[in-house]
């Protein structure tokens, strides 16, 4: 049977009535925990033009979270802050390229990533389905808070202008861009590429590729848990968080993306509340979502709104 055009797909994800309350409570619980930032200069990764620091801070459940922070040495006045959020099975990069463009750039390693995995380490595969039957202990509850705390870290820095903070990432980083823009009103611009964590339950019907296949694996072993899984994931689904996004945002998808099906990206995009939103859909591209050319669009978009 031919597939429905990606932009015509109707998501089956249901909106929990208390989703906003759930996240407000989670944010409030996180806010009670002192950030306790530790910032250590790294001479090995620093250059003549860029200072690089290893950063550690405390997040939900008092889990200690790591990150890379990079700032340009030659600067006048305050810098815009940019949060870079990582893909699913990649290591958070040292964000020197963004610092080179004039941003105070923070690349966060949410719980379970290397350097943030001493207290929580479900592994890969594993992260996506960890405690997937309980919204209060599901892996991404803390994971989302870790990225939100990345925004707090930027806000804590004297050199950062708190009125010019953006977020960007690709794949899981695209999904985290959506969740962070939805949960942190300080975000002024967001650029999400090939977003993951949108339409979780749709995705397992649209693709047989990992990482979403982890959910299919879990349900094959635990078929009686399907309703609990659906109920939990609904609280974390980018489609259900997008109504909270009010900042300017751009989204890109590849129409042949087998990792994060474009149908789910369109469904999330349609739900974004911001009037200043634009979708870039690339035919002939998979999970790369035409990064090769789209990167310049992201640069221009962030520069327009954050003014490095």
């Amino acid at each position: 049977m031919p597939r429905v055009a990606a932009d015509q797909y109707v998501s089956k994800v249901r909106m929990p009535e208390d989703i906003d309350r759930f996240w407000e409570d989670t944010l409030a619980e996180t806010a009670k925990i002192p950030l306790e930032p530790e910032v250590v200069h790294d001479p090995l990764r620093s250059t003549e033009r860029i200072d690089v620091y290893e950063v550690f801070f405390t997040s939900l459940d008092r889990v200690r979270i790591a990150g890379w922070y990079a700032t340009p040495r030659d600067r006048e006045g305050k810098l815009p802050g940019l949060l870079q959020v990582p893909g699913y099975n990649m290591e958070p990069p040292v964000p020197k390229a963004w610092a080179n463009k004039g941003y105070a750039a923070f690349s966060v390693a949410p719980r379970g990533k290397l350097r943030s995995n001493r207290q929580f380490n479900p592994g890969y595969p594993g992260l996506l389905t960890y405690s997937m039957v309980d919204r209060n202990t599901y892996s991404y509850r803390g994971f989302y808070m870790d990225t939100c705390r990345g925004v707090e870290f930027l806000l804590s820095r004297d050199e950062v202008d708190g009125e010019r903070i953006g977020v960007t990432g690709h794949s899981q980083g695209g999904g985290l861009t959506v969740s962070t823009a939805a949960l942190r009103p300080e975000i002024r611009a967001a650029a999400a590429g090939a977003p993951y964590l949108c339409g979780y339950m749709d995705a397992i019907e649209l693709t047989d590729a990992y990482p979403y296949q982890e959910i299919a694996d879990y349900l094959r072993m635990n078929p009686d848990s399907r309703e609990q899984v659906e109920n939990t994931l609904a609280y974390f689904d980018g489609i259900n968080l997008a109504h909270r996004i009010t900042c300017p945002i751009i989204v890109s998808v590849g129409l042949q993306d087998s990792t994060c099906p474009p149908e789910t990206g369109f469904a999330m995009f349609d739900a974004i509340a911001s009037a200043d939103k634009r979708m870039y859909a690339y035919d002939g591209h998979g999970h790369d979502a035409n990064n090769h050319e789209h990167g310049a669009i992201v640069d221009d978009f962030l520069a327009k709104h954050l003014r490095p």
Binding site: N89, P125, A209, Y210, D257, S258, T259, G286, H287
Partner: peptide, 8 residues
């Protein structure tokens, strides 16, 4: 990964 991400 068991098989590479994005492959069938």
């Amino acid at each position: 990964d068991l098989v590479p991400q994005g492959t069938s």
